[in-house]
């Protein structure tokens, strides 16, 4: 039996299959790398949710930008809301901001987005994507939340699908600020 090819084929197949599944635990199938990484971040203009002021992404060159896509109806966005706000308090509200934090609400209504922002005391720049979802299309968003880390040269360094953690944001920004 030990010499039979069937014997070894069966065990090799089983071993391979189970090994493969075990390997599956080490990766996240949802983390497909974005083709945008290493490329210039698509420029856009965003109107502030509150006062109608607008900002252009290209005008923020020279400082890293954290670009967060969110929606008021999204549960995971609620969970990451305080992390983003705390990060903004630390890096964005200083006299000369070290990092710009921008939130783009997609597939959302202005009143609901405002209610969400009030509920979580958001103070960073928030805007609403237009009804066509042009910005979301440019960035290849297929769910909320998704967060892009854009370096001072305007290149996308990293994309997070799903909620961010404080550690992850720290790590990415340290790297972009050259402290990593």
């Amino acid at each position: 039996m030990w010499k039979s090819w069937k014997f070894w084929t069966v065990w090799a197949t089983l071993g391979g299959l189970i090994g493969l599944f075990a390997f599956g635990f080490t990766t996240d199938p949802k983390k497909v790398p974005s083709p945008l990484i290493g490329h210039e971040a698509p420029n856009f203009q965003l109107v502030n949710l509150w006062n109608g002021e607008s900002v252009e992404l290209s005008a923020l060159r020279g400082k890293p930008v954290v670009l967060n896509f969110w929606a008021s109806w999204c549960v995971e966005c609620q969970q990451e809301a305080h992390i983003l706000e705390a990060f903004h308090k630390r890096y964005g509200e200083t006299v000369s901001p070290q990092v710009h934090v921008i939130g783009v609400a997609i597939q959302d209504k202005s009143e609901q987005a405002q209610a969400f922002a009030r509920q979580f005391n958001k103070t960073y720049f928030l805007g609403l994507d237009n009804t066509n979802g042009d910005i979301a299309l440019e960035y290849g968003i297929y769910g909320v939340p998704e967060t892009f880390f854009i370096d001072p040269q305007g290149k996308i360094r990293f994309k997070q699908i799903g909620g961010v953690s404080a550690e992850l944001m720290q790590e990415q920004v340290d790297e972009m600020l050259g402290q990593g």
Partner: peptide, 15 residues
């Protein structure tokens, strides 16, 4: 399971 296999062997994500 092929996406898993591809990732295990070549490190690429595919579907």
């Amino acid at each position: 399971t092929f996406p898993l296999l591809a990732e295990a062997i070549r490190g690429t994500k595919l579907s």
